[in-house]
């Protein structure tokens, strides 16, 4: 079976790139990448949970839908480049509008998506 399949692919590739003299040709590449938040620290300094996971509060409420997690518990970067769970820092700034790590005035640089 797969001999036939082979021939087909050969033809098609020959048509695509007319360089039959090339010894190695990359046909397919199944690659794997891992994404994480682009932060200097792995853990949120406020709730001490990995920023990749939902913050403590959200975990306690135990959101039933795993896919929702990213939407509900996002990461937030301040102008100082420190990052926290958005839920955590929102609560924090109600008490003091400073970054808990560097004491600079807190202002949001961007939110993750």
């Amino acid at each position: 079976m797969h001999f036939l399949g082979m021939d087909d692919e050969d033809k098609s590739s020959d048509n695509e790139q007319s360089k039959p003299d090339k010894m190695f040709t990359l046909k397919r590449w199944n690659s794997v990448a891992m994404w994480s938040w682009d932060c200097s620290t792995d853990t949120c300094a406020i709730c001490r949970v990995q920023v990749m996971d939902a913050c403590l509060r959200c975990q306690a409420e135990s959101k039933k839908d795993a896919t929702n997690k990213d939407v509900t518990c996002v990461v937030c970067w301040g102008e100082c480049n420190h990052s926290f769970h958005h839920c955590c820092i929102s609560l924090w700034v109600k008490q003091s509008n400073r970054c808990p790590l560097c004491q600079q005035e807190w202002s949001i640089q961007r939110l993750s998506s």
Binding site: K27, W35, S36, W37
Partner: peptide, 26 residues
């Protein structure tokens, strides 16, 4: 493309888990 789709994420490539098909013309 990924960075335009999402913000605040970084990718690291796990090459030891990748595989592919190589056409070897001898």
């Amino acid at each position: 493309f990924y960075n335009t789709s999402f913000s605040g994420r970084k990718l690291s490539w796990l090459h030891h888990l990748c595989a592919g098909e190589l056409k070897v013309s001898l």
